[in-house]
Amino acid sequence: MKKLLQIAALLLLIYSYAFAKTSTEPLDSIEEIVSVFQSGSSKELAKFFDQGIDININGNQGDYSRSQAELVMRDFFRKFPPMGFQLVHKGSNSDQVINYIGNYESEDGVFRVFIRGKREEGEIKVYSLDIVKGANKN
Score class of each variant (00 low, 15 high):
L4S: 06
L5F: 15
I7F: 14
A9S: 15
A9E: 09
L10E: 05
S16T: 12
A18G: 02
F19D: 11
A20G: 00
K21H: 06
K21V: 04
L27R: 10
D28M: 15
D28K: 14
E31T: 13
E32T: 01
I33G: 02
V34G: 04
S35I: 03
Q38S: 14
Q38C: 08
S39L: 04
A46T: 12
A46F: 09
K47M: 08
K47N: 13
F49W: 10
Q51Y: 03
G52D: 14
I53H: 10
I53G: 10
I55E: 05
N56G: 03
G62M: 09
D63H: 14
S67L: 13
Q68H: 06
L71Y: 11
L71V: 10
D75Y: 09
F76N: 05
F77C: 02
F77W: 03
R78E: 09
K79W: 03
K79E: 12
F80N: 15
P81R: 06
P82C: 01
G84D: 11
F85L: 02
Q86G: 09
Q86K: 15
V88Y: 02
H89G: 02
S92D: 13
S94G: 10
D95C: 08
Q96N: 12
I98P: 02
Y104A: 00
S106Q: 05
E107A: 15
F111K: 05
F111L: 08
V113I: 14
F114R: 03
F114D: 05
G117Q: 04
E121A: 08
E121V: 00
E123Y: 05
K125R: 14
K125W: 01
S128M: 09
S128C: 02
D130C: 00
I131A: 06
G134C: 12
A135M: 11
N138P: 00
